[in-house]
Design a protein around this nucleic acid. Structure first.
Lengths: 128, 128
DNA sequence: GATAAACCTTACTGTTGGAGTAAGGTCAAG
DNA sequence: CTTGACCTTACTCCAACAGTAAGGTTTATC
């Protein structure tokens, strides 16, 4: 199949598919006589795997690792476990940071009931 | 004062100070005879204001607006209120998205108790 | 007075994960 | 035969800096 069909089957833009190939996340696509990329159903599976990982905000370099690990199905999956665990930790850490930020912004937003910039409590708070 | 002293007083890297000047967030610094940038105490205040905004993850373009608004102290501060409110909304939205992500990752992390990649439930889940 | 460390300058590249655009080749339908 | 949909590579752009190179200046020490 051509790239646009792969795109529709996987919900990944053609542009993005070429990009993944460029950065080595997907193998070099085989070409047919006119130079167009030619994909098979296994490419669909690979790309859906990548898309799922991206939905979990796993960075491309780590997705590479997850793909690499699967080349030997008898190897330990501890690396996979660890990677997901780290990703979970990252997300939790970010949530905590943003929660603090939310509190600060909420307090700030409520602080000003004036109309004039010169007396704006928000701006005064931002200057400390 | 020279850029490094301004940097120490504000906790903003010299590099970043020059960058802020480049993108128009800070006015062009005056220079003394050897070509070094020369700052005053008002620059300290301006930069601390910018740093506080950045701590709240307000993008540089919006900080520009916040600075611009203050040139006329008699103008309304509704624009400031709105900007902070939008920033708060952005943060809340991101927190919500990340919370969903956290659930998914947590479920995923718990799903595999095998040792072998070929039977790893995490990887199987990622392929759907 | 020499020299080395610390500091200053501009300018260019790299980061992440693509999106946008240009300039052109190919293919199927009407 | 032309139009529109699709394909190709290659380049630039985004945010907010950080890293590095290559060079000029100042200050402290020997």
């Amino acid at each position: 199949m051509k790239i646009n069909q792969l795109s529709k089957l996987t919900n990944v833009l053609s542009k993005t598919i070429r990009y993944y190939e460029d950065v080595g996340l997907l193998p070099k696509a085989s070409r047919n006589s006119n130079g167009y990329r030619d994909y098979s159903s296994s490419d669909v599976d690979n790309l859906i795997f990548i898309r799922r990982c991206r939905e979990l905000q796993i960075p491309l370099e780590k997705i590479k690792v997850l793909i690499q690990v699967q080349t030997d199905t008898t190897s330990s999956c501890s690396e996979v476990d660890l990677l997901i665990e780290q990703q979970l930790e990252n997300v939790r850490k970010t949530i905590n940071e943003l929660s603090l930020l939310e509190k600060t912004l909420h307090t700030l937003a409520k602080s000003c009931s004036n109309d004039i910039v010169g007396e704006c409590e928000i701006l005064k708070n931002l200057k400390q």
